[in-house]
């Protein structure tokens, strides 16, 4: 469904991605793991149109996404939950979720407000509150809920565990498991390799802007040497 072909991205002369190729098939959860600065967030930013690609292609069901602006990419159902949540702090929880529908336009609605509230009941309780007043974990739930409101074809998740307490991480990943069971296609970026491998079908390991390894998540999780080699201390995090 999502196909990335020899993608290169440069920031002011520095090569952040050096020819990344990967695919995400429909209904699959694919994890992208790698150390800080490996180019994980850049990859998602390039897919969603926030940063321009220097070379290569990004295709969704064969349609070229590479040169489209971010608002058009999201209108096609590629929804990005950015690093650091990026909720609209001065708007209420409900308004944040309503804004998530902006990209629906011509696509049919598959997720309703009730679905999101059932997935994250705390958001229903806090719906009149300003998003900026939520805790980090609640903001992460809101950011995911906001993307779900746009009925994603594919959900891009950037470090959903970042800066959260273990018990909150467990809640967020429980929700991801439910989304996976419902058949949603997800590309998940994580520093926490074990968490990512548990939650995914396949995984790629990225380092210094290149894919250095890939395979079924279950196999990679067995093979401690690969993870230790590429991720070092992060493996146990």
């Amino acid at each position: 469904m999502l196909e990335i072909d020899r993608l290169e991205v440069r920031y002011s002369g520095i090569e952040a991605l050096r020819g990344v190729s990967m695919t995400v098939n429909s209904g699959e959860v694919v994890a992208m793991i790698g150390p800080n600065g490996a180019g994980k967030s850049t990859l998602l930013n390039a897919i969603s149109g926030i940063v321009p690609a220097h070379a290569g292609h990004i295709r969704l069901d064969g349609r070229e996404l590479t040169v489209l602006p971010a608002w058009t990419v999201s209108a096609m159902g590629v929804l990005h939950v950015p690093e650091g949540r990026q909720v609209f702090a001065d708007l209420t929880v409900l308004e944040n979720l309503q804004l998530g529908e902006t990209c629906l336009k011509s696509r049919p609605r598959r997720t309703t407000l009730t679905d999101v509230y059932d997935l994250f009941p705390i958001l229903r309780e806090r719906q009149a509150q300003l998003a900026g007043s939520l805790s980090g974990g609640q903001q992460q739930m809101l950011a995911i809920g906001r993307a779900l409101m746009g009925s994603p074809e594919i959900l891009l998740l950037d470090e959903p565990s970042l800066g959260l307490a273990p018990v909150i991480i467990a809640q967020v990943f429980d929700a991801l498991r439910a989304l996976r069971a419902s058949g949603l296609t997800i590309l998940l970026i994580e520093q926490n390799a074990h968490l990512a491998l548990q939650a995914s079908d396949r995984a790629y390991i990225i380092d210094q802007g290149r894919i250095v390894h890939s395979g079924a998540s279950a196999d990679l999780a067995q093979d401690d040497s690969v993870i230790a080699h590429y991720l070092g201390d992060l493996a146990g995090a």
Partner: peptide, 8 residues
């Protein structure tokens, strides 16, 4: 940036 990501 977040506004662009939701389709604005």
């Amino acid at each position: 940036k977040a506004a662009m990501l939701v389709g604005v």
